[in-house]
Design a protein around this nucleic acid. Structure first.
Lengths: 160, 160
DNA sequence: GATATTTAATACGATATCGTACTACATACC
DNA sequence: GGTATGTAGTACGATATCGTATTAAATATC
């Protein structure tokens, strides 16, 4: 991870003419966010993607692999390998799905919740910093992101 | 549950209580955007990341691998393998860097530019759809994204 | 000007992601 | 109720990503 650049202008981004558009910049933001979170929570043993998954699992009654696959727009096979990995860590268990014998629901174990909490403690300050950096615009920015999320999902469904 | 549960549509996102924050949702948007672009430009032979890279290379005088690494927040080794891959495709060439003998600049070849143009033709309509879906908010959303990008970069630099 | 330190890029190995092909259960249709 | 079709999840193989260690050029120190 390349660190300090020295001269105080680490991120040189040539924001060129027709290059900047809403999808492109969403991509760019995500790269930056991903790296930020990755480094911030590194010592927890989770990476940014995993932290997001643990978060959504922690927040509800548990999801099926398919739900997870849709939710995070990942290939089903990718989710399968997540499940294996998380199980190997003792962080999740499979709850049988009474409504569908092919499927099951994913739930965090106590250990899994502890790992999530630890990552969360590392995550919180950088979120606060980001919100500080956004200042008064923080809420609006967040709202616009959700708007964008729905717009992109709509287009995605349309093209599915 | 949560949002639109109605039809058998792909994206059911449980927007749960404290789970939604600006970084988290940036991550979520990116997953969606990534998949949208991937499928849209698939037939061009480029994926979303590659399209972004080709775009930035096409837009300027060419960048060094380090620049690219900073710009897209990717590991230097990842950039190295990009270079190999793109060279294998005949899509880029290395221009020696007169200022630094260890380095070089990446430039698209004519074939590379053609590939980029093809991907661009597939990309344009989905961008238009997204902007339509955003309607009047399109510009504001884009502006907020750039604000967020700068905020995140600032935090990232701080923590570097 | 010689040596020490830093920086740019990469080779290599470990692991992650995902496409293809498959199995097993569920639902539709007759 | 029996067959046909669809859907949930996965094994496996191909390739991508990235961490660690290395090489070579640039910059700093003396």
């Amino acid at each position: 991870m390349t660190k300090a650049d020295g001269d105080g202008s680490p991120a040189k981004r040539p924001i060129v003419g027709g290059l900047s558009n809403v999808l492109f910049d969403a991509w760019l933001v995500s790269r930056s966010v991903h790296q930020l979170i990755d480094t911030a929570i590194e010592e927890s043993g989770l990476d940014a993607d995993e932290f997001a998954i643990y978060s959504v699992l922690a927040s509800g009654e548990g999801m099926t692999p398919s739900d997870l696959s849709h939710w995070m727009a990942a290939a089903p096979t990718t989710v399968s390998s997540y499940v294996k990995r998380f199980e190997r860590r003792g962080h999740i268990t499979r709850i049988p799905n009474p409504e569908d014998g092919r499927s099951y629901r994913l739930q965090l174990t106590a250990t899994g919740r502890a790992a999530h909490r630890h990552a969360g403690e590392l995550f919180t300050p950088i979120l606060a910093h980001t919100e500080d950096a956004l200042g008064a615009r923080a809420e609006k920015t967040h709202a616009q992101l959700l708007t964008l999320l729905h717009a992109v999902d709509a287009v995605r469904d349309e093209h599915a």
